[in-house]
Design a protein around this nucleic acid. Structure first.
Lengths: 165, 165
DNA sequence: CGTTTTCATACTCGAGTGGTAGGAATTCGG
DNA sequence: CCGAATTCCTACCACTCGAGTATGAAAACG
């Protein structure tokens, strides 16, 4: 459950392009405004172009711009473009795993995880973030004070009592 | 957004232990019943023991058993024990990232992702899976036919369902 | 004692992550 | 056409992680 630098950079760069409008933005400018290594960003932009999310032009006055309206590109689109499927279990898609014995129902848990990932990532667009006007359901999720708290697993006071290794 | 073999093995093994009850199960038996490489499973079990989720005993009649009731161990507990935080962005926790310019609100998206991950993973116990009696909200998430479909194309936001009330 | 099992350490081997370097191809203004 | 700007392409690098193997020591039993 890790969001890689590549995904993070890609999303932030596209948000910057959403805010920049239809005129081309140079990679060097994007790199500096989001604090991304310039040559690494070039590789990310190449993926985004091959994925059809941005267009580009070379030369002076060259640069990158969104290939589709910012309202029509979701965070899920970006992740799928630069990294692949939203959720996978040991390299397989959740609907393809097959468990035996008492673990059979575990597949449903992974499916539910993907449903909840999609519920957020497929319903937030670049425009939503760039304008700062996030959809209502998103505010409902983040307004819970517990949402911003780090949560560590319960400390077990049992493990010193019983058979110690 | 990848569930590693280690996590998958750990969860399935603990479900098997939940089904086995209080008597010790041998690593070799667990490995065969869930089709996990035996020596690899031993390393996973060592993490689980150090994390306080299982106890162990050596020798004949030795083996592993749950250190706590199966109802009190959630899937989130298992992931945090063998892998660390549920969700991270470039190695940092979502509440620690800091974005500038139009990407500022992106942090809220990552927070919401974590909220929805927690909504599933902190509310399903080993006992729930082992008995096959998953909590009601889980069934609600997986009963949607779209939940089991693979999705590669841009998604039109038709239904936003946050998790569990 | 010997057998069974956990436990610890070390190792391999490939893939992925996060970059960097150098230069070719294109687009522009003049 | 010239030259500058900028994208684009290929390759490379260091490091970590994922997944798994091998060997043997330590404990629990009878």
């Amino acid at each position: 459950m890790h969001i890689t630098a590549k995904v993070d950079y890609a999303v932030r760069t596209l948000i910057e392009l959403a805010a920049a409008g239809p005129s081309p933005s140079k990679a060097e400018f994007l790199a500096q405004s989001q604090t991304i290594p310039h040559k690494f960003l070039e590789a990310v932009l190449a993926d985004l172009r091959r994925g059809g999310l941005v267009n580009s032009r070379r030369g002076p006055d060259g640069g990158y711009w969104l290939a589709r309206p910012a309202e029509d590109i979701t965070i899920a689109d970006v992740i799928r473009t630069v990294e692949g499927p939203l959720a996978s279990v040991r390299g397989e898609r959740p609907e393809d795993v097959d468990y035996g014995g008492p673990a059979a129902k575990l597949q449903d848990v992974w499916i539910a995880v993907r449903v909840n990932l999609r519920a957020v990532l497929e319903n937030v667009s670049l425009a939503d973030v760039a304008t700062g006007q996030l959809p209502g359901f998103l505010g409902a999720l983040t307004s819970d004070p517990g949402a911003w708290e780090r949560r560590t697993r319960p400390a077990t006071s049992v493990d010193e009592g019983a058979a110690r290794g």
